[in-house]
Design a protein around this nucleic acid. Sequence first.
DNA 1: TCCTTGATGAGTCTTAGTCTCATCACCGTA
DNA 2: TACGGTGATGAGACTAAGACTCATCAAGGA
Lengths: 191, 191
Amino acid sequence: MARWQPDAHARLEEAALELFTERGFEAVSTAEIAGRAGLTKATFFRHFPDKPEVLFWGQDLIATTFRHAIADGPASASPLELVRVAILAVAPVFDADRHRHAATRQRLITSSATLHERAVLKRAALARTITDALQDRDVAAETAELAGLAGAAAFGAAYEHWAASPTCRDFADLGRRELDRIPRAAASLAR
Amino acid sequence: MARWQPDAHARLEEAALELFTERGFEAVSTAEIAGRAGLTKATFFRHFPDKPEVLFWGQDLIATTFRHAIADGPASASPLELVRVAILAVAPVFDADRHRHAATRQRLITSSATLHERAVLKRAALARTITDALQDRDVAAETAELAGLAGAAAFGAAYEHWAASPTCRDFADLGRRELDRIPRAAASLAR
DNA sequence: TCCTTGATGAGTCTTAGTCTCATCACCGTA
DNA sequence: TACGGTGATGAGACTAAGACTCATCAAGGA
């Protein structure tokens, strides 16, 4: 007989998603989320650093995967090819299980200014991760910067398509499609 | 005989800058800022929507100027030329008076996670403003997106150089310099 | 003289987020 | 079998951001 139910973390995520869907992000307090999960507010903040983060759990893994994939990519690869390798490396994360609540999460994010801000910050952080990883591979600073911004935007666009689709489409495919648009855009900026 | 001292807004900005410099952003409460300005917390929030914003006042003007400059730019201009026009249009804002506290503000922003986040959000919003304005000029979506990201990054870099310089250098010159790096970077992403 | 307007003071209230301390199942060890 | 350490949690106090309401009072206009 366990003293506590297992998987407090997952229960909190589930409760938050339910309550946010019912009444919106701002109208739900952290104490209510914890209550529905059979826990207290203090425990909520032991599992998540703040209220928005309960909807963004797991994003750190994506950045880590990007960093390693770029660091370990083939020596002959161009900057954009390295970004492509990274997007392919994270693709397995976006499986059918994760897809189940993706659309709901996206709807919530677009309906709350606070959540939208958090999403923008996450994307900016991913851009910086890519840029830094490329510079570690001796890519020139301005190239790495632009590739980081473009790569993060491509990843974000791919994610939005994946989340919005009623079926769980192949993330790698969506990512490739977005990446393939970058050279055209870059060409029209290159004098 | 006036009932209140004039320029409450400026007094609040001044008090905030002093207190943040003395003790750091997080360690100063809005009530203290208001107190030093001879006002109350409620009045602070009548002038600024939240605590970080007291250090970012005036940024909205920059975005507005960008939008109008791009909308009114020459018909023959390329996307990057339109961004250049916009950066030249905002340059007059960065005069010696504004330069006086710029370095202090930058130091504060880099020393506080909250303020750094706000700066990132402002830059992302500027990128979106540029992208939208370019699309209104019938620039292709992916080109407008990349030009917005690159343009906002160039503006940010120019601002950081301008703020960090001990003398008030010519902002237009710094902006041009940053913009001139974009075509090179874009070329190395264009296949 | 009266009335309206607008900026402010004063105070209340909710909630995010922090912190401290007590509790108690579990697990290893004597 | 007893004992002690560990780790997740409950309970509750505390601070500060931000929203909100109402009273005040100078200025300015009719």
